[in-house]
């Protein structure tokens, strides 16, 4: 079985894409912490539920960005294939 250089690059790109989406762990933890504190805050002050919800969603959406960078790198490696000559 002959493995050419391009095949090797494609295989390594697939491994790299898999490694890149590990970046999703961080935002998962961060969003969980935000949701936990939001639940805590609603328990203390149920009247402010609307404000707490919108603040929580805004913070979570911003925290999600780092995970999406990992996703972008994975998509570039899988579909754009920048390393293949």
């Amino acid at each position: 079985m002959n493995i050419t250089g391009t095949d090797l690059i494609l295989a390594c790109s697939a491994i790299g894409a898999g490694l890149a989406v590990i970046a999703g762990i961080g935002p998962g933890i961060g969003q969980g912490i935000a949701a936990g504190y939001a639940a805590n805050a609603v328990g203390r002050n149920p009247g402010a539920k609307g404000d707490i919800m919108s603040t929580m969603l805004l913070g979570q959406a911003v925290a999600e960005t780092t995970g999406l960078y990992g996703l972008l790198v994975a998509m570039l490696l899988m579909f754009v294939k920048p390393l293949v000559p």
Binding site: A61, T65, L68
Partner: peptide, 10 residues
């Protein structure tokens, strides 16, 4: 721009 792009693309 990347935040909006990556969310919709995903």
């Amino acid at each position: 721009s990347l935040r909006l792009f990556a969310n919709v693309l995903s």
